[in-house]
Nucleic acid binder design. Structure first.
Lengths: 224, 224
DNA sequence: ACAAAAGTGTTCCCGTTACACCCATGA
DNA sequence: TCATGGGTGTAACGGGAACACTTTTGT
């Protein structure tokens, strides 16, 4: 089988760009590296693909090891294959992004990995080619956000319209008119009002809403 | 450096999904495999990444070996990392798509590689996970086509508005009103009329247009 | 009483769509 | 002269943007 063995092999890594909302701000979960290479710099959480797992499996494993979570929304960003992207060895990396709901992670595990939440608009200096990975991912989710209902993965199951609007404003980076926003939500079948009231964030109380996945799949219109 | 060497290595391939227009139809350049694995099936053109080249370089090399062309529009689609996607060996593949202009290739090289142009709406059975690669790529270019001026890569440098409209109809899969289309073109700064006339496709003759890249970059509005 | 967030409709404008006929030319 | 593709304008419609005040309730 010379066809294969004439060719070189490579380490293949996955890098997980993990998003979450902390106090309404869009944040990334980053780790400060206390080992070489790039010791002292910040980086997104990564790991190597193993022989018995697909690249997608590896990304899910890395996420699970860091957060304790399964069944998180993840999607591939793309492969990064520059020759010298890792100063230690030739490594080809496949980047994924994940969207975590609030509080859906194990603080102890995060501490064990030197990981902390950093707002995307005040990122520290990142090692490797992670700056490019992150900027490409931000472009990707901003585009996707407007056309597909991925944002709900960042919110609790029940959320108020103010929370939803703030999320949109945060990710798209511009203010939205409240009445127009609520009008569009009302026309969006997959966002349904519950009869529950949230009293924690205002004196008056706000209705709680929920994303209805099966309604979305039966009539996948989404634009907000 | 146990950090790296504790981990397995993999063959890494690139697969090129090459688009071109043949007689106005959107086609893919496919090869009939006369070697294992998947002998006899059709596949997109691929190759292995080498130690001295990036993944992007490898994709460009594969394209050059097949077509003789440099400086072709190419973009990454993503990585495909399922464990058994290649029946012969574990291979992780990074897919790219390329857009070729008409006649911009060496017919002799194509023949040497058993390659031929196949319309995308009548594709033969493909090997490996190439069906998924192709369908993901088609989605990708259809989305991108409406928002960025990538379509001009499929046309000659000078083209008529009928050619441009037919291309849009072909890729988006629906007819477009001629007057509305021409109105939008007239409002699009990066598509400029030349004073040349094409007489080959009609008795009356049609004005030739050209995509002006620097105008696009100074005012990157594009929607057509 | 007041602070703080929730909730609610209408108007205007611009961009999108629908639509049908004349023009220039080579055969 | 006729067949073929090239070229042109207008009217109706609908979705998106702009805009300010009332409600509720805990302190």
């Amino acid at each position: 089988m010379a066809f294969y063995s004439d060719n070189p092999k490579f380490y293949v890594a996955v890098d997980c760009i993990i998003f979450g909302l902390v106090e309404g701000q869009l944040c990334l979960l980053l780790t400060r590296r206390d080992f070489e290479p790039e010791r002292g710099k910040w980086s997104v959480m990564g790991g190597f693909v193993q022989t018995d797992e697909s690249a997608d499996d590896a990304a899910r494993r890395v996420l699970r090891q860091l957060t304790g979570l399964e069944n998180v929304y993840m999607e591939q960003v793309g492969a990064f294959g520059a020759v010298n992207r890792d100063p230690g060895e030739r490594v080809i990396s496949i980047a994924y992004y994940a969207l975590l709901g609030p509080g859906e992670y194990d603080p102890q595990l995060l501490a064990n990995h030197n990981a902390s939440w950093v707002p995307v608009d005040t990122l520290p200096q990142l090692g490797f080619d992670h700056p490019e990975m992150v900027s490409r991912t931000l472009e990707l989710i901003r585009r996707k956000f407007s056309t597909e209902p991925i944002g709900f993965n960042l919110l609790p199951e029940l959320f108020t319209l103010s929370q939803l609007q703030t999320l949109h404003e945060t990710i798209l980076g511009e203010p939205i008119d409240k009445r127009n926003f609520r009008k569009r939500v009302a026309e969006t079948a997959c966002i349904e009002k519950t009869d529950l009231i949230d009293k924690t964030s205002s004196r008056r109380g706000a209705s709680l809403y929920r994303f209805n996945d099966s309604r979305y799949h039966s009539d996948p219109k989404f634009r907000i």
